[in-house]
């Protein structure tokens, strides 16, 4: 075992994994974390804690992750390269593992111009691929980056990263996946999938390159709440395209929220059957209370207990 995390155990046993997502509060209100975590409890194998997503200042992912550990839940802490240099990131990895965190998701992070600190300076001392490599060196080599210096203790992290099959240039997206695998990634979470045709094409290319045997791919899904949200995401969120078919279904639905969940469940059903997909990452953003319903309807319950 690389980390001994629940997520690692589930994936290594060949079971279909389910992960969720929790956005920490814009402040230090622990109750927000607890409330969202309770909604996810029992329905997922691990919970992603976002790291100041869309460059909005929030409680740190490691602090919120430590709160989850205290609750007996398993966090996947996201770490973006935008806000910290290699000194701070390695230091935080020491700290996170000391607090019981066993999974990390290495990300670039949204540009600071999207957030509430537009005049800040982005760091990107490392990029996401270099961060994967860094965590792997810390875990497998037992040293810090570029150093002979032995780490006091052991860094047991299950290393994840993102993949966006909907970003451009499309042909490069599998090469980027290959780079992340070469850097040492254990699992991949994809961007929200709506365009199934393009996703299947990306998976085919990854298969042709022999990549799907080398990494656990968790397919990302996000339930749509309304036609308005679908249109907004399609137009404004870079790296996301939503086919007209879904937008029309949402627009025509009597109960759009129920229709959104129905679409999401259909997607999960389809993804479950796909070669190389080892789990789903359900990003029910500010809709954590729907996670029980979604996982139930998709036949993902009960979550297995592994040791």
């Amino acid at each position: 075992m690389k980390s001994g995390s629940n997520l690692e155990k589930i994936l290594e046993k060949g079971l279909f994994a389910v992960t969720g997502e929790l956005g920490p509060p814009k402040g230090n209100d622990i109750e927000v974390v607890k409330k969202k975590a309770e909604f996810l409890k029992g329905y997922v194998d691990a919970i992603n804690i976002t790291d100041n997503q869309t460059a909005i200042v929030r409680m740190s992912s490691i602090a919120a992750g430590a709160l989850l550990v205290q609750m007996g839940l398993e966090p996947v802490i996201q770490m973006v390269t935008r806000d910290r240099n290699r000194i701070a990131m390695q230091s935080d990895i020491f700290g996170a593992t000391a607090l019981g965190v066993k999974n990390i998701l290495c990300l670039t992070g949204d540009h600071q111009s999207f957030g509430n600190q537009v005049d800040s300076k982005n760091v990107h001392d490392m990029d996401s691929i270099q961060l994967i490599d860094c965590v792997r060196i810390m875990r497998d080599g037992g040293t810090i980056l570029g150093g002979e210096e032995q780490i006091e203790g052991q860094i047991k992290m299950f290393i994840g990263a993102a993949a966006n099959p909907f970003g451009d240039p499309f042909e490069f997206r599998v090469i980027r996946l290959a780079k992340k695998i070469n850097a040492g990634v254990d699992f991949i979470q994809t961007q929200c999938i709506y365009d199934m045709k393009r996703f299947k094409e990306w998976m085919r290319m990854a298969g042709d390159m022999g990549l799907i045997e080398k990494v656990h791919i968790l397919a990302g899904v996000t339930p749509l709440k309304s036609a308005g949200m679908a249109r907004y995401m399609n137009k404004n969120v870079s790296g996301i395209t939503i086919p007209d078919e879904f937008i029309n279904r949402m627009a025509k639905a009597q109960k759009p929220a129920e229709e959104g969940i129905k679409i999401c469940v259909e997607q999960i059903e389809e993804l479950k059957e796909m070669d190389g997909i080892h789990g789903v990452h359900i990003m029910a953003i500010e809709w954590e209370h729907k996670m029980g319903q979604i996982t139930e309807m998709a036949g993902l319950l009960p979550r297995p207990a592994v040791s």
Partner: peptide, 15 residues
């Protein structure tokens, strides 16, 4: 905009 050294991030769209 992020000084990335290993290819485009997920935000690259239509160039």
């Amino acid at each position: 905009a992020k000084q990335l050294l290993n290819g485009p991030c997920g935000g690259s769209q239509d160039g």
